[in-house]
Every structure is written in C-alpha cells, then in structure tokens.
Amino acid sequence: MSSVKKLASKMLEEKEFFAPGHRACGGCGEVIGLRLAFKEIGGNAIVVNATGCSEIIASQYPYTSWNIPWIHALFENTAAVASGIEAGLKIMEKKGISHSKGAKVVAVAGDGATSDIGLQALSGALERGHDFVYICLDNEAYMNTGIQRSSATPYGATTTTSPVGGKQKIGQVTWKKDMPSIAVAHNIPYVATACPSYPVDLVAKIKKAIEVKGPAYIHMFTACPTGWGCPSNMAVKLGRLAVQTGVFPLYEVENGAYTVNVKPAKLKPVAEYLKIQKRFRHLGDEEIKYIEQRLAEEYQKLLEKSEASAS
C-alpha cells in the first residue's frame, strides 16, 4: 500500500494532462492508463495520437482534453508522424532554432492502429531508432467503430466481425497477435507490457521508457467495459484478472533481457476472467480448457525467457 500512497502523492503534485470533460464511456480503462502515463511523462512532451477511441474522446473541435501539445493525423501513420516530430526537434535544437527544449515525443495508438493498420509505420520508426515512446492502448478490438475484431482480439471473443453463429461457434478463431514480441524483434532498448490495474508498475515502466535513449514500446492492456460486455465498474478488476490468469502477463524487456514483473504463484483459472465478460459467454468448457492450456504454455515460455536473461 505504501508504494500506492507514494504514487498518489506524486500524482497529486502534477496536474491532469488529460483533463476531465473527455467523452470516453464511463469506466473506460484506456483513460485510466492515459492519466497515469502522462502524470509520469509530465508537461514537456508532444503527443501524437492515432485515430481511435483515445483520439475521438478528447478532441471534438473546438475542444481538447490535452494540456500538452497534441497532434492527430490519421489512423495508420502515428509512428511516422512521431518520427518526423523527433527528427524536426533534433535538427532544430542542433541549429538553435527549436521552440522547445528536450520535449519527449509520445505516440498513443490503439491495438488496431498498432498491430494492424499502423504496423508498417511502427516497424519503420522502431527500426530507424527514433527517440520516442510508443504506447499501444490495447482494448482488443476496434471499439471506436463499433467493436470489430483486430489482430489483438483474443481467441474466443465475439466482436461484430467475429460473431458466433450456427457454423462458427468460437468467435475470434485466431490467437492474439504477440505485438510486444514484434517490438522486441526490432532490438529496441525498451519494451514493456503494462496495465493500469497495476499503477505503480505502469508508472515505473513509463519512467524507464521516457528515460531510455531510442525507441521504447509500451503495450498497455486497457479493459473496455462497453466492448467486452461487462458493467462499467469492472475495468480495473478485469486488468488484474488478466494478469493473474496469464491472459496478459506483465513483463519488460530491457536491451533484450526479459523480466517478469508480476509473478502469480499459480495462475488463476481463466474462467474467472472469461465468465464476467459477455464476449466470452458462448465458450464451452472445452474451449476454456484450450485457452487455459495455451495461456499456461505461453506464460511458461515467458518465464523461461526471463530465467535465461537472469542467468
């Protein structure tokens, strides 16, 4: 509890860079993540936002929820816009004509904008080594357009484009794309998964991401009560259960070395997580068992990577 209190007192000193009056659904997990992240990032930053929930809820002309400079261009080009900003700031600072000193460039995009339509731009920016932080707010579907599946939608979830029917009884038939591993494959200095349900861990990772020189990728698991079919008070609980069941392990990869940050002694039964969401309610015991086994395998692989890094 003391670390939480410490975090709270530090947060209280900073203003809300993502101001109230935003139009997110009640109980949105994504904005908890944004609030927490920008409390740590602070005011000397420039935000590049992809089209999506986080953009639309904060930017209805003539208003903005942002208390820091913010730019939204398109859906798939966030990392490219960030690349240009970083390059522009760098050369202008070198030439002594920059407007801002040492501003951090932070890209914010949803799971579709990251792992589907914006993957190429992100890969390019990571490969080129721009000094910026990319935060993927993963709510596991295209929520802003009405809950369509993305490559980040988990196996077994129904969405409006992975529906369950007479012939197809599973929903999403593919396993969630392992986006953090794709980021790791670019040999960037810092990759981490985070979840606002673990605020101290999240903020510590944001701090590292900001401090590191070069690209940093944070994959943030943010529950969406609207899209997942659960009451509006569930976002924090769902995040916690996702971590405890192995659905979304919290880990970081520093210069290739893995550390699992939250290690449950034993993974909780995944049914505890699945049963409280309408998107999984059609799943039978067999599918749930399959999911649990696969999660256990993936988690084991992660632990092995972490152990290998430590030795």
């Binding site: 101001a19 109230p20 009056g21 009640g26 930017s59 208003y63 903005t64 208390n67 820091i68």
Partner: peptide, 18 residues
C-alpha cells in the same frame, strides 16, 4: 482548425451522463 486553449474540454460537463 487547431485548438489554442489547452485542456478546454474541461468546460464540457460529463456529469449528466450519470
């Protein structure tokens, strides 16, 4: 079509969604 009043969304009341 830029916005020059940072955080002015705070003028927007969301309490009546409750």
């Amino acid at each position: 079509a830029t916005v020059h009043e940072p955080g002015n969304a705070s003028q927007y009341k969301t309490g009546d969604w409750r």
